[in-house]
Nucleic acid binder design. Structure first.
Lengths: 345, 345
DNA sequence: TTGTAAGCGTTATCAA
DNA sequence: TTGATAACGCTTACAA
C-alpha cells in the first residue's frame, strides 16, 4: 500500500547519508561513524537514529564498497544446482551469512563461455572471494582473478597449479572402501559408471576403484568402466552397456547420484531388481537412497563440514589478505551401508 | 601461476578507467563510452582495447551503479533450497542471465529475522528487483522496498495487498484434479498432508482437496487433514497419525514432495506397500517419483515456465519503471499419472 | 566524436 | 568526538 507521491518520475531518489546528516544536525562523517558502529555521542546517536527512521534511509553498499574495496559478497560458481550443489549452497549460504557476507551465485551448466562470463561478472562486481567447483578450462581466467588478489577456494574438483585454497573430500579412499566392500561380499566383476575425466573427482574415484581391484588381485577389465559423465542419461546408457556385456558385472559402482539414478532407471525398465539381480552402490548420499526399496549403499560427503571449512578459510584469508594461503583440506567421507548389495555365494 | 610482484601489500589496486585512458591517450569519457558500447573512432577503439588488455582492466560495477542507479542484480529470496527452489534457481538464473543480469540469492530457512536481514541486504545492495517466495511476515518490509520503487515479484506463495507482480500456479485446480482422480478410482477416505497454512499455496491446495470431496458428496472428516508443514518429518508424523486412525484413509494426498517422502518413509518402516496397501499422490513432480517402485502420481509445476514468466515481467518492469504493474499470472499444472494409486473394488 | 569536469554516496584523513 | 573535505571509479552533460 505504498503511498505513492509521484509515480511518474522514473525512480524515487532514496535518502543519502547527507540527508540524514542534515536532518540530524550533524556532519556526514558522524553519520558514517554511527553506521559503522563507532563511538558516537549519545545525543547525536539518537538524533541520527530518528533521522534514519524518518527518512527510510538505507546505506548504499556500492558507494561504500567503492571506497573500502570490500563488497562483502562471495562469488559462488557451480556447474548445476543438483542435489549436491544445492545442499552446498544451502549450507554455505548459512555459514557465510553468519560472517556478515552473502553469496553471489552463478550457474554455468558446463558451458565454457558462461564460465568466462561468470568470472568476468565476479571480477566486475569485485567479489571479496570466489568459491567454485573447479573445471579445467578456467585455468587462465581464474589466474587472472588471483593476480587481482581475489582469494579462490576450490571445492569438489580441483584445478591444479593455481595459487588457491582447496577443500576436497577423500574421493579415492572412499571409492576404494566402497568397492572393497563389494569385493568382501564376493563380487568379482564390478562395473563402474565414471564421471567426466576432465574433473579431478572423477579421476580420483576411478583410481580408488582400480586400486581396490588391484590390491585384491582382481582383473581390471576396461570394458567394466564406462563413462557416464555425471548425468542421469549417461548413467542409464553406461548401465545398459555394462549389462549387455557377454558376462555382465554382478555389482555396479556409480561415481555420483545422478548416474546411480540412471542405473536404477535402466534396471526398472528391464525388470532387474536390486539387490537380487544386481548390486548397486553410489557416491553421494541423498535422501531417496534411504527410502528406495532396499536403500542404496552410498558414500556420504560431509557437506556441512565442507561448507564450514570453506567459510573458515574465507574468514582467515579475508582477515589477512597478505598471507599466501595455499592449503588443501581433505575431508573424510562415510560409507552408509544399506540393502542394495547382495552377498555372492 | 600468477607471477607475484608484491604479495606483502594488502591489496593490489586494480587498474581504473583513468589508467586505461592514459595508456590509450584518450579521455576517460571516451573510454566510458567505449565500455558502454557507444560509437568510437576506430583508432581510439583499438588503442583502448589494447590498453584494457595490457592493464587487465575490469570495470568496477559498484562505481558504475552509484551513478546509474542500476546494479543489474536481481535479489532472489527463498526459504530453502529444496528440489523445487533449486530447480527454480537453476531456471531463473539462466533466463535472467540472458538479459545481462545476475541473481543475488538469500536463503532464510523460515526465520523471520533472517528474512528481515535479507531484505535489508537487498535494499543496501540496491538490487534492481526482487523475486521471492512470499511469506506473511514480510508485509511491511517488502512494502518498504516497494516505496523505494524496487519491483517485487512473488512466486509460489502470495502476500496479499502489496503492489507487486505475481507468478503463481493453479494450486487449487491442480489439487482438485488429482483428488478427483483418487475419487474416480473409488477412494472415499482420502487423507491430506497439508503445508503451513500461513502460506497461500498451502491454503489453496487444501481448498482444492476440499472442493473435490464436497463436489463428489464425500464427507469431509477434519481428522483426515493433518498439518505436515512442508517438511519430511512433518509428513512422516502426519502420515503416522492418519494411519493410526480408527479407520485410516485408503489414499493420501501430500501437498508437496518432502511430505510425500515422509509418508513413504513411514510406509517403509511399517511395511506398507504403495499402491497395494495405500495409494499416494503428491504435489510437485521430482525425478525420483518416476523411479520409485511403481512411480508416484504427482502434480508437475511448470518450473521453466514460471522462471521465464518472471524474467519477462522483470524485463518489462525494468524497461518501464514508471508503469504501475500489478499483475498476477496463473500457470497450469500437469497431472502425471503413475502407478502409486490402486483402484478400489 | 572528443575532452573536461561535475556529480553519485560513501569512507577516511586531518584539524579542531 | 566532531566537522570539513578530499578521495574512490565511474557516467554524463556540456562545450569544443
Amino acid at each position: 500500500m505504498s503511498e505513492t507521491t509521484d509515480r511518474t518520475t522514473a525512480k524515487r531518489r532514496s535518502a543519502t547519508i547527507i540527508d540524514v546528516a542534515k536532518a540530524a544536525n550533524v556532519a556526514v562523517g558522524t553519520v558514517s561513524r554511527y553506521l559503522n558502529g563507532q563511538i558516537i555521542r549519545r545525543s547525536n546517536r539518537e538524533q541520527i537514529e530518528t533521522a534514519i527512521h524518518n527518512l527510510g534511509y538505507r546505506r548504499n553498499a556500492a558507494a561504500a564498497s567503492i571506497r573500502t574495496d570490500l563488497t562483502h559478497m562471495i562469488g559462488f560458481l557451480v556447474p548445476t544446482f543438483d542435489e549436491f550443489h544445492a545442499r552446498m549452497l544451502e549450507h554455505l549460504a548459512r555459514s557465510v551469512r553468519q560472517t556478515g557476507r552473502a553469496l553471489l551465485t552463478y550457474c554455468h551448466g558446463g558451458d565454457p563461455r558462461i564460465v568466462a562470463e561468470a568470472l568476468d561478472f565476479f571480477a566486475a562486481q569485485r567479489v571479496d572471494a570466489l568459491v567454485m567447483d573447479g573445471t579445467a578450462e578456467v585455468y587462465h581466467r581464474v589466474d587472472d582473478l588471483i593476480t587481482h588478489d581475489v582469494p579462490i577456494i576450490f571445492y569438489n574438483n580441483d584445478v591444479k597449479g593455481l595459487a588457491a585454497d582447496r577443500v576436497m573430500v577423500e574421493n579415492q579412499k572412499a571409492s576404494y572402501r566402497i568397492v572393497t566392500h563389494l569385493i568382501d561380499l564376493g563380487h568379482q566383476r564390478i562395473g563402474m559408471l565414471t564421471g567426466n575425466p576432465a574433473n579431478s573427482s572423477a579421476v580420483e574415484r576411478l583410481t580408488g576403484y582400480e586400486q581396490a581391484l588391484i590390491e585384491y588381485g582382481l582383473p581390471t577389465d576396461p570394458a567394466l568402466t564406462v563413462r557416464g559423465n555425471w548425468v542421469y542419461e549417461g548413467g542409464y546408457q553406461a548401465t545398459k552397456r555394462l549389462m549387455q556385456l557377454e558376462t555382465p558385472p554382478t555389482a555396479i559402482f556409480a561415481a555420483n547420484y545422478n548416474m546411480a539414478m540412471g542405473a536404477l532407471g535402466w534396471f526398472k525398465e528391464n525388470g532387474l531388481r536390486v539387490p537380487t539381480d544386481i548390486s548397486l552402490v553410489s557416491f553421494d548420499d541423498v535422501e531417496i537412497f534411504r527410502l528406495l526399496d532396499a536403500g542404496i549403499t552410498a558414500v556420504a560427503q560431509p557437506v556441512a563440514k565442507i561448507a564450514d571449512t570453506i567459510t573458515d578459510i574465507l574468514v582467515e584469508r579475508l582477515a589477512d589478505p597478505s598471507g599466501s594461503h595455499n592449503r588443501t583440506t581433505l575431508l573424510e567421507c562415510d560409507i552408509i551401508l544399506r540393502g542394495s548389495t547382495r552377498r555372492l555365494t
